[in-house]
Design a protein around this nucleic acid. Structure first.
Lengths: 155, 155
DNA sequence: CGTCATTCATTTGTATACGAACAATACTGG
DNA sequence: CCAGTATTGTTCGTATACAAATGAATGACG
């Protein structure tokens, strides 16, 4: 069955034209999903306290900001308002974040880390460095830089 | 608030050491998520019949294989058995795929495209080519090749 | 000042995504 | 042939992810 695939990958035809065929496994979307999968596995094995990639982004951003409205936070970490709400709910349930109503704007919900959350943020960052490194382990330093540069161009 | 971020990006210290700080937005995981987000938006705008990226992978693979057991199919498109089940259920509900019990192995569920599914697969592939192109639009041909090569190394 | 567009947060619905536990079936070595 | 192991598909629970609809509050502007 896998043989089947390889064979079909080679029947380009003998006309000189070579109409570059479509190969799913070579498409940016497909590879992107695979890379993300590997990264998530590494993340799960190195990040403590069951913190997920999404949760870490929020925690790290809050650690930098101190406090922030929920929507604004979402924009900073590239998350939908609905997604952020779920993340904050779960983090707050774990005692990592806390929320309060903004005094100046009754619509806004101010989010911040708890004392416990700030301690965790520091541990997480240490793990995060290892995680990025492990994810990029197959590449040289120059390649890592090149990959990040290219990815940022298509983000 | 955004200013806050930029400022903090520059307080590396005046000792010559420069302990390369951790910047969330420069991490492979974070950028990967952003790139995927943009790709999914493009995908949604160009793919017909509300076919999702995941569903397309399955449809495209089945179009190549003819038929395949559900688990094997999952392996070929890098999807969990539980995930594939959901995808096939939804595709079958839409009349795009069909399943039958394997005669030789009572455990296996053979999955294949319906006649309708085969027609759709052809349309989808045309769209998929545009989608990959649009996603990589910010890059030159050489850069696209480089990016794919690097991504495949870390997949 | 009041209306109207905007912003904020929430809720609902759909689709991934995967670990873990399970039952049914197949295979393998003795 | 049979006990133990492996494979296949299913189900459940949890966590993203986002569109769309909604209600409350704010801001702009005539």
């Amino acid at each position: 069955m896998v043989e089947e695939l390889k064979k079909s990958s080679r029947r380009a035809g003998t006309t000189g034209v070579r109409k570059s065929r479509y190969i799913l496994e070579e498409q940016i979307g497909f590879v992107l999903r695979q890379v993300t999968q590997r990264h998530v596995v590494i993340f799960g094995s190195l990040m403590p306290s069951g913190i997920t990639p999404t949760q870490f982004s929020v925690v790290n951003m809050l650690d930098r900001l101190g406090h922030c409205s929920q929507n604004q936070l979402g924009r900073l970490v590239s998350m939908d308002a609905a997604t952020v709400k779920g993340v904050i709910d779960r983090l707050s349930a774990k005692g990592i974040t806390q929320t309060e109503q903004d005094q100046n704007d009754a619509r806004q919900l101010l989010v911040s880390l708890t004392a416990e959350g700030r301690v965790l943020a520091a541990e997480c960052q240490k793990a995060a460095i290892k995680i990025s490194d492990e994810t990029l382990a197959p590449l040289t330093t120059a390649e890592r830089k090149r990959l990040l540069t290219l990815l940022k161009k298509v983000a």
